[in-house]
Design a protein around this nucleic acid. Structure first.
Length: 792
DNA sequence: CACGCTCTGCCTGCG
DNA sequence: GCAGAGCGTG
């Protein structure tokens, strides 16, 4: 009897001590940290301290094992000891941690913990945070990395069992595209019938669903397009295999296959990884879900963290269903919601909640804050893109004066990269320091890829694709005809092209170009020698020198000078790799580069305004954000008017707004030029989803008589009315004539046709032409003046 | 074989 | 409106 009491007391005080020790976390965060065993889904909204939860939970597991959840009580527990513990509640966090550490149950070493992230940047941040909490040594033993980098470790180790050579290559998207293109030429499939880009996207989707070429081909009756894709997919996969190359999707798909077929690899994962967590789970695809299922099959200690409302990568194969239906795969999963936001004002959160609540397929949740209400969100309509950019520039200057803000407090988040041009040039003229994030990535620049292709060939002479890239770059009079002759000989003999080049004099078809080919061959041979004897940066330097690449750039203009600068930067990257890596090698560098994306991605250092797409802003936060182009056809883009796509756009708008801590400016323009055409777009439908009380439509929207005419008409004390924004051209010519006006999406009634939805409203000669889809009577064209439409 | 011209197609983008 | 691809000519 007394013993039970001791055990009960121990259990109770243990939990209390944990509660106290993690007092700085909120309830949801604590629940997630303490829920150590079994499957766990953490729904963590924007700005709720998601990374903190992952880091704290891992640290908790390493320090205390499953002590919190364990029902075990030490057999030698005495009332005196329990009393000592009960007294410990007075102590501070650190002392409590020390006291509890003595009772750790099922301790877990750091190398048995695995954490998946989506980007290298996120992985680095995770490692940094872990190092802060656990110390460098412990933190570096944790397996934390992107899906791709973790999978690569397995493919390098077990890849040969799948038939890949020891030194297989990773193709990036451009390489894959080239490879696919040659497949399609071989199969005589015209690009007009099946564009390479879309075929590649199809293949990517198939791989993300783990569908093999065989399975897809076997799939009975298909349309012509799918049949072609099946054909192309099969050949593409064969080619990749012959070249011993994998694309990004293969890295995941082949690892899944490995775990399904190779008992040793499966046992390794399931023996080693006792706790697995996945960050940004809403961005996973079916292959990635399958992968983590396989890796955690035995112990099922799987935690996934994400926010379905921030799932914005459906277009590249992520399935939001993974997070929506996690509990159907794991019926015993515990679900923790974290809704307290530490980032934004309540006005911003209410606006975000208002937008996102219009989505159907989602886990119900609502962000809240105990912080201040803050400024209202500002909506501003400008005449054109230039005015829009000027407004942003002006606001930035104004706020940096009035509110003493730094330039780095501001971010401009747009839907499309092409929107950045005007803004950049206005900023430059206004002397506003800014940084453009995203766009063409460093390692995707032509000059960088060229140099890396040289090195890839040096590293692996069988890499025909890279060889073809550089054999005539810079120009050395080896034209397409000659290259394709070499290719034919190579494939006829089943050898790599480089072998053919080496023995050029022995092939009559190409022997008369033997000298040119020998020169190229000598170049590669020379570089291989340098690789074996000199450090990496010397190899890089020599590559640029001996290949003639530098000479080509030196004599160029401004553009070439910039390229040269990029190439120099590559050399310095090689240098820093050399000094940082454990065992620096060319192949090691090439692999790191292949899996790297954002070398020049956002780092918050430096006092400059950040310019980027909403997509690249995910995970970041700024005191003040601007969203230019908050318009129909831009945000959301016209290509996305299908229901599922619109829900994704809405999530994207939610992401945009929730990046802000204090202020949000949404902008639209009256006339926008896109792809050389000028259009009038209505303001974004998402604007209407923001509760009126969090929104302020900029007073200066309308200047002069247009403003007064409008406010009289709409009776909304100077605010631009939705109707006006939709058909601005008309109101200018005849403000009162048309009566009430409507915009696309509005529900209207007509005395004869009944209820319907407005599809479009076009100003024509002082009136408005409406196209209305009536519920029962079909689609009609009506003139505003005569139709006498009424708002439903 | 290289260069210059016309034609096309265009969102978002990790690894 | 612009860049990259494809084609024709010197």
């Amino acid at each position: 009897m007394a013993e039970t009491t001791v055990a009960e007391r121990f259990d109770r005080i243990k939990r209390l001590l944990f509660e106290k020790m993690y007092g700085r976390l909120n309830e949801g965060q604590k629940q997630a940290v303490f829920a150590v065993n079994g499957p766990l889904l953490v729904l963590a909204g924007a700005g709720t301290g998601k990374t903190t939860v992952i880091v704290e939970r891992i640290a908790h597991i390493i320090r205390f094992g499953d002590l919190y959840e364990s029902s075990a009580c030490p057999v030698d527990m005495t009332p005196g000891e329990v009393a000592r513990l009960e007294a410990a509640i007075q102590l501070g966090e650190d002392e409590i941690a020390q006291v509890l550490a003595d009772y750790v149950t099922n301790p877990c070493p750091p190398w048995d913990i695995l954490c998946f992230t989506f980007t290298n940047k996120a992985a680095d941040e995770m490692k940094d945070r872990l190092a802060q909490t656990l110390g460098d040594e412990t933190a570096s033993a944790i397996w934390a990395g992107t899906f791709h980098s973790i999978c690569m470790r397995f493919l390098r180790k077990y890849g040969e069992s799948l038939g890949y050579s020891k030194d297989f290559t990773v193709y990036d998207t451009e390489d894959s595209k080239r490879c696919l293109k040659s497949c399609m030429q071989e199969l005589d499939i015209d690009e007009a019938v099946l564009p390479v880009k879309s075929a590649l996207a199809d293949i990517s989707r198939l791989k993300e669903k783990l569908i093999t070429p065989q399975e897809f081909s076997a799939d009975a009756q298909k349309d012509l397009r799918s049949k072609r894709v099946a054909l192309v997919y099969a050949l593409y996969q064969k080619k990749m295999r012959d070249a011993s190359a994998v694309d990004f999707d293969d890295i995941i798909m082949q690892t899944v296959r490995l775990l399904e077929t190779n008992g040793e690899a499966f046992d390794f994962c399931n023996g080693r990884f006792r706790y697995v967590s996945v960050d940004e789970f809403q961005d996973t695809n079916p292959a990635q879900l399958r992968l983590i299922q396989l890796m955690t099959e035995r112990r099922r200690n799987i935690m996934v963290v994400g926010d379905d409302d921030q799932s914005i990568y459906r277009f590249r194969g992520a399935t939001i269903e993974n997070i929506l239906n996690f509990d159907s795969g794991y019926p015993d999963a515990r679900i923790v919601r974290i809704e307290e936001n530490y980032r934004s004002t309540s006005n911003i959160l209410n606006a975000a909640n208002g937008i996102i609540s219009n989505n159907k397929g989602r886990h119900e949740k609502r962000l809240f804050t105990n912080g201040p209400q803050g400024e209202k969100i500002v909506y501003r309509k400008c005449e054109n893109q230039l005015e829009e950019a000027k407004f942003i520039a002006g606001k930035i200057l104004e706020l940096s004066m009035k509110e003493k803000r730094k330039y780095s407090d501001f971010a401009v988040l747009y839907r499309m990269n092409s929107q950045s041009n005007v803004i950049e040039s206005v900023f430059s003229r206004s002397g506003i320091p800014h940084r453009l994030i995203g766009g063409t990535r460093f390692y995707e620049r032509k000059e960088i890829k060229d140099i890396l292709a040289y090195l890839a060939v040096v590293s692996n002479p069988a890499d025909d694709l890279r060889l073809r890239r550089i054999i005539n770059e810079p120009k050395r009079k080896i034209g397409d005809k000659l290259v394709s002759d070499i290719e034919i000989i190579a494939s006829a003999n089943g050898i790599p092209m480089f072998e053919v080049i080496k023995d050029a004099p022995f092939y009559p078809q190409i022997c008369r170009s033997a000298q040119k080919l020998k020169d190229f061959c000598d170049l590669i041979t020379e570089l291989s020698k340098i690789r074996d004897t000199a450090p990496l940066d010397v190899l890089f330097e020599k590559t640029i020198e001996l290949s003639g690449y530098r000479a080509m750039l030196v004599n160029g203009g401004e553009e070439e000078a910039e390229k040269l600068q990029n190439v120099e930067e590559l050399i310095s990257n090689a240098q820093s790799y050399q000094s940082a890596a454990d065992e620096p090698s060319l192949s090691g560098f090439l692999e790191e580069v292949a899996l790297m994306s954002d070398i020049d991605n956002y780092d918050s250092t430096g006092n400059a305004v950040a310019l980027m797409t909403v997509h690249s802003a995910k995970g970041l936060e700024f005191p003040v954000i601007f969203v230019p182009g908050f318009e129909e056809n831009i945000f959301p883009p016209s290509a996305s008017f299908e229901k599922e796509d619109i829900e994704e756009e809405r999530r994207l708008a939610y992401v945009a707004v929730t990046r802000a801590k204090e202020r949000v400016f949404l902008l639209s323009v009256n006339e926008r030029t896109l792809y050389g055409r000028t259009n009038k777009n209505r303001e974004s439908r998402f604007l209407r989803e923001i509760p009126q009380e969090c929104l302020r439509k900029d007073e200066q929207v309308e200047n002069g008589r247009r403003a007064s005419a409008l406010s009289r008409q709409s009776g909304k004390n100077g605010f631009i009315s939705r109707e006006f924004a939709q058909v601005p051209a008309l109101t200018r010519s005849s403000p009162a004539k048309a009566g009430a006006t409507f915009g696309a999406g509005d529900r209207v009634t007509h005395m004869f046709f009944g209820s319907g939805t407005v599809l479009s409203a076009t100003p024509v000669g002082g009136d408005i032409l409406y196209v209305v889809a009536f519920d029962d009577k079909g689609t009609k064209k009506l003139m505003g003046t005569y139709a006498k439409l009424k708002k439903e």
